[in-house]
């Protein structure tokens, strides 16, 4: 057929406007002195910055691992049916989802005000030991909070505990998405609860859990910038800002921060795409799926 296709002149007009705006933006990037590209380029790969990237990556990975494990425990507690466990899990989620991460980060950075040391022992020993006519304390060892909860540990803990609350909700949704018939079939085969969770329910929940977990990981990478306010001085954003303030070249270093985070999140998005494909049986073939994200 040789029908004349429908024309969309308004789309062409819009495209032209956008193109002009884009051209103006690129022109500005090259002509505005404040960008100081050579300075940025010289400094964004300096040793402390590269070490900062390492800290950012390790904080992301560790806080996600702790967060996921914690999330599994909390989700199982939420679904356990025991009123105490359900309530504790709910309260935990309520607190850590309700307080901004920035506030948590600063709060954990100041925990040493609350406890100078953490001692591990039997609870309430100062009350019941005298009652039994015993002297002394039932404490086994102690940790000095100021050294143990140094900047990095405090920040990591804040991020991981906060992540646990979000992961708990994600994993709970995943577990609930698995058909009840799956559990029944496994029970009928003589599998016990723990084995059903490990072998049948969790693997199927993964399909629902993986995509939002990918998003959480990317969000976490960006949230490691909050560590700068704990403060964690070895962290990427802190280092870039430090160079900026020291040299009065604040803007180039902020652009460097953007570029670093963009580069790493882009790598993570590619990883997310392949992991999602791996865990989605229907997509295991060659079919392609767009990379989505809510952040």
């Amino acid at each position: 057929m040789s029908a004349v296709p429908v024309r969309y002149p308004e789309r062409w007009a819009a495209a032209c406007v956008v193109l002009v705006l884009a051209a103006m933006f690129v022109h500005m990037l090259f002509t505005n002195e404040a960008f100081n590209w050579p300075f940025m380029w010289d400094n964004m790969f300096s040793d402390p910055v590269v070490r900062g990237v390492g800290v950012t990556l390790s904080a992301t990975v560790l806080s996600m691992i702790i967060g996921i494990l914690l999330g599994i425990v909390l989700a199982v507690m939420r679904l356990s049916g025991n009123p105490v466990l359900v309530t504790v899990a709910w309260l935990y989620t309520w607190f850590f989802r309700g307080v901004p991460r920035l506030v948590l980060a600063v709060l954990f950075g100041n925990l040493a005000i609350l406890y100078a040391t953490i001692q591990i022992g039997l609870p309430f020993d100062n009350y019941w030991m005298p009652l039994l006519g015993l002297e002394g304390e039932a404490r086994f060892f102690e940790i000095d909070v100021r050294t143990a909860l140094s900047g990095y540990m405090a920040g990591l803990l804040a991020l991981a505990l906060s992540e646990g609350a979000y992961m708990a909700e994600i994993i709970r949704a995943g577990l609930q998405s698995v058909d009840k018939g799956q559990t029944e079939a496994a029970q009928a085969l003589g599998m016990n609860r723990g084995r059903i969770l490990r072998r049948i329910t969790l693997p199927q929940a993964m399909r629902v859990v993986i995509p939002p977990t990918g998003n959480e990981t990317i969000a976490m990478l960006k949230d490691t910038a909050l560590l700068a306010y704990v403060p964690v001085t070895i962290e990427l954003f802190y280092q870039l800002q430090a160079i900026g303030t020291k040299t009065y070249q604040i803007f180039p270093m902020l652009v460097a921060a953007c570029l670093w985070y963009l580069a790493i999140t882009s790598v993570l998005m590619v990883g997310q795409y392949f992991i999602e494909r791996r865990f989605n049986p229907e997509q295991r073939g060659a079919r392609i799926r767009t990379v989505g994200g809510r952040h």
């Binding site: 018939g181 029944e184 079939a185 496994a186 199927q204 049986p281």
Partner: peptide
């Protein structure tokens, strides 16, 4: 046991 809706493990 065999179920009406099979309940095979899809993974």
């Amino acid at each position: 046991m065999v179920f009406q809706r099979f309940n095979l493990f899809p993974h």
